Amino acid sequence: MLTLIRNAKIYAPEYLGVQDVLTADSRILKIGPDIPEVREYDVQTIDGTGMLLFPGFIDSHVHILGGGGEGSYHTRTPEIMLTDITTGGVTTVVGCLGTDGTTRNMASLLAKARGLEEEGITTYIYTGSYQIPVRTLTGNLMDDLILIDKAIGCGEIAISDHRSSQPTKEEFARIVGDTRTGGILSGKAGVVNIHMGDGKRMLAYLRYVVEETEIPPSNMLPTHINRSMRLLKEGMDYAKTLGGFLDLTTSSDPDYLEEDEVKASTGLKMLLDEGVPEHQITFSSDGQGSIPIFGKNGKFVGLGVGKVTSLYREVRDAVLTDRVGLTQALKTVTSNPADLLKLERKGRIAAGKDADLVLVQEDTMEIDTVMAKGNLMVYKQKAVRKGTFENL
């Protein structure tokens, strides 16, 4: 199938002006003005007039199997469905385990990732869960990275949190080192995705790795960095002085933030204003993980489920409310995670890249159309391709 998107304002994520984009099979074939439509080749044409065209979004932290709930077995969150992902403009996800590495295991995580890929999006996984020793498929962290195609890193390893295994800083450094080496040997990113709790140690373990070993900060991605103002400020210093990368979590209730929690869009604005280099900042949703819900009086009323759709909500809010530049906001979910995770065909609109594209209405910035690997997933705000069990 050839698809021609006409007359859209392209943010690649840098602004390229009003142009056409031609895709063939799963790749972008050509970008330019007035690309001719050759009817003999059965070209599908989409009118992008009055719309902005973005690269498909990358969500680097999704509990695709669901997560272990905070209220015993009955609060284990359900597995994610395809349209939970695509309606938010996300075309690439990295699946992870969280607190529960027992009833949610690596074999099931890999199978779920393969299933979502068969349904039309691009998927990867992290080896491990909160706990140390790291849960693996082969019995060895480096072997997982070298031998399993979808395993691109390790995580989410919990530190500074009462639910972590309380590793020593030397144990933590060893995991980062093994992940880096496994990445080198397999041509992958070798990134450790790190669950940051609100403990007093904050980023001390990451500082130890950067300051006391030869491992660069690009092999670590601390997430939930906006869970508190204290942690966010610590992250600012870590990023500016040591070159560290920071990931802000978008799944929260913007009307009822936890005490001292910082909304992701606002956190992005703060980081940029403080001089944190824009390429060191990413967003992820924590989608399908369990999150607490509070009533209007601030009283805990139950558990909710993280939403992948929150990823673009925070990008949009960063632009419309927090006055972050559109290109800067987009980079947090496109080129920045693509570069950090070494996803060479993702994160940009350019010839030869995967045809992962998102059309949004210019006046409202609402998602209109989503294409993953050249296939329409969402068209005119309706999911046109659904997961296997969504059609029952």
Rank of each mutant, 00 (worst) to 15 (best):
T91M: 07
F294P: 02
K269S: 15
N336G: 03
I157W: 04
L116F: 11
V176K: 10
R39D: 09
I35V: 14
S251P: 08
D178W: 11
I291L: 14
A24D: 04
G88E: 10
I64K: 01
D144C: 12
K112W: 05
G71C: 00
G298H: 07
S72W: 03
V315M: 12
G32K: 02
I215V: 14
G71P: 04
T87K: 12
T388R: 10
A111T: 15
E314M: 07
I146Q: 12
N193K: 11
G101C: 09
N140M: 01
V38E: 13
E14G: 05
G155I: 11
E40H: 00
S290C: 06
V305T: 13
K307Y: 03
G182K: 09
V38T: 09
R227P: 00
Y126V: 03
K299E: 14
G190R: 10
D59S: 11
N375G: 02
R180Y: 06
G243Y: 06
G68R: 08
E214N: 14
T249C: 07
T364G: 10
D198H: 04
L326P: 04
G287K: 11
G32N: 10
C96Y: 03
V93Y: 02
Y208D: 00
A264P: 00
D25Y: 06
Q166W: 00
T87D: 02
S129V: 01
Q361R: 13
L271G: 05
M196C: 07
A351F: 03
I35M: 08
R207V: 13
R230N: 12
I125V: 15
L343T: 07
T364M: 11
L4E: 09
G374L: 02
I293M: 14
Y15K: 13
L268D: 09
D144P: 11
A355P: 00
G197S: 14
G32E: 01
G243A: 08
A329W: 01
L97D: 07
N140I: 04
M270K: 01
F294H: 13
Y124K: 13
Y205V: 01
K112V: 02
L16C: 04
G153Y: 04
I293A: 08
L82G: 02
A173Q: 08
L341C: 01
L320K: 15
V90P: 03
E211M: 15
L268R: 06
T364E: 10
L2E: 13
E118A: 12
G69K: 06
S129D: 15
